[in-house]
Design a protein around this nucleic acid. Structure first.
Lengths: 111, 111
DNA sequence: TTCACCTATCGTTAATCGACGATAGACTAT
DNA sequence: ATAGTCTATCGTCGATTAACGATAGGTGAA
C-alpha cells in the first residue's frame, strides 16, 4: 500500500552520529535564560539599559511590586551575572553587566 | 566635605522621562526565555536543530530522563511555540519552529 | 480483532518560585 | 549618639516545577 511516501524523509533526516557533548553551555544558557524568564526581570533590565535609573528605590517605583519582591528579582539578576550592584552611600546602584548580556545574546544567537 | 564627587554621575545618569510602556514584548520574551530555561529543553532544541532526530523515542534515548519527563518538556516547548510535533503513524515527529526561534533571537538581540 | 508499540496524560511527591510583610543592617545627617 | 532612610534578608504561604511510575489512547501489524 505504501502509505504516504516510501521514503518518508519529510521530517526526520537522521544522519550524523553525534552524541551531544555534555553541554556545559546548555547549563550556562539555561541559567541566563532563566534570569530573563520573568516579565519583572525583563522590565528591570530594560530600565537599566535605558539608564533611567540604577538606584534600587527608583526601580521599585517603576514596578507594581513590593520592595522586597523587587529586591529578590535583583538578587536573581545579580546571581545570573547580568546585573551588578555597587553600594553608593546609603543606596545601591545597579547596572547591566554588558559582557554577560553579550554572552546571553551570543548563546541564544548560536542556537 | 564633598564626599566622593560633587557630580556623582559614575553610574546613574538619569535622564529621559520614559515610563516603560506596558511591555507586551516583555511577556512574550519571558515566555520564550522560560522555555529554554532548562538544560534538558536546550538539549532537545539542539538535538532537533542537528536534525539528528525528530522522533520522540530517539529524543528520549539521548536524555537521561524518563519518557514521561521528556514528554513534559516537549509539551512545554510546544506551548512556547518553539517546537512543533506532527503525528507520523504511531510515532510523533518533532521539529523546530524556525520563525519562533527567530523571534526569540530577535527579542533577545533587541535587549 | 487482537497484540505490540509509541506517546500523552494522570497522580504523586519533593523542591522551588513569587509574592508579601516584618525586621535587621548600613549609612547619612542632624 | 540618635534618628531617619534605603536595601537585604527572614519567614511564611500558595502556586508551580520537575521528576517519576503507572496507565490510557492511538496506530500499524499479525
Amino acid at each position: 500500500m505504501e502509505k504516504k511516501s516510501s521514503v518518508k524523509t519529510q521530517c526526520c533526516d537522521n544522519g550524523q552520529e553525534l552524541t551531544l557533548p555534555d553541554d556545559a553551555t546548555a547549563e550556562d544558557l539555561s541559567k541566563l535564560a532563566w534570569a530573563i524568564a520573568h516579565p519583572a526581570r525583563i522590565r528591570i533590565i530594560r530600565l537599566l539599559l535605558m539608564k533611567k535609573s540604577c538606584v534600587c528605590g527608583e526601580i521599585v517605583e517603576e514596578m507594581p511590586l513590593a520592595q522586597s519582591t523587587v529586591s529578590q528579582h535583583l538578587k536573581i539578576l545579580k546571581e545570573s551575572g547580568l546585573v551588578e550592584g555597587e553600594i553608593d552611600g546609603p543606596r545601591v546602584c545597579y547596572c547591566i553587566n554588558k559582557s554577560a548580556l553579550k554572552q546571553l545574546k551570543r548563546l541564544v544567537g548560536a542556537l
